[in-house]
């Protein structure tokens, strides 16, 4: 049993699939995330795959300062990522709302709505910093997978299922 658990832990660490969610970003961070997957930085070496559907993903990457419109979408998508999951906030925007602070269209920062595991600061952060953040999140994810899903960290929107 122990060996099986260790194997699963390793596999989770070595195969983080990402879902990219833009919550009103200026597109700077999004371009850097795409650059991290490009031949120069080659995130696939870490087993990273960018997935189109949140159901397939393990790590949710959020960029942008969280506009009011995006809040419900973020919660839905967070609920759609299956356990175990982790959240990476890319850029200064989701952490602090950055230059958009005090705007009345914002409902940020991100941590008010969903639990965040890793913050990657920068405006925008460099692709290698993003990769480091993803690797860190994969480690957190592997440890979290050992425990049953915690209802305190899972918002009530767990299943926006039809």
């Amino acid at each position: 049993m122990k060996i099986w658990q260790r194997l699963i832990c390793t596999c989770r660490r070595r195969s983080p699939w990402l879902f990219h969610m833009n919550s009103g970003s200026c597109n700077g961070c999004d371009i850097e995330l795409v650059a991290a997957l490009s031949p120069r930085f080659d995130a696939e070496q870490l087993g990273v795959r960018l997935e189109g559907s949140p159901r397939h993903a393990d790590i949710m990457c959020v960029t942008g300062p969280v506009t009011r419109n995006a809040v419900s979408a973020i919660k839905t998508v967070y609920g759609q990522v299956c356990h175990p999951k982790a959240v990476v906030a890319i850029g200064s925007c989701p952490a602090t709302t950055n230059v958009f602070i005090d705007s009345r269209t914002l409902a940020g920062p991100l941590e008010k709505h969903i639990p965040v595991d890793v913050f990657v600061p920068g405006c925008p952060p460099r692709p290698d910093a993003i990769l480091q953040g993803v690797a860190k999140a994969a480690e957190i994810l592997a440890e979290r997978g050992m425990k049953p899903p915690d209802s305190a960290t899972t918002p009530a929107v767990e299943e926006a299922q039809r």
């Binding site: 596999c11 393990d58 299943e159």
Partner: peptide, 16 residues
């Protein structure tokens, strides 16, 4: 990698 992906997916929860 495909083996890692497979085992990881096997150990994930599915929505009800």
């Amino acid at each position: 990698q495909p083996f890692f992906d497979f085992v990881k997916l096997l150990a994930k929860r599915t929505p009800p």
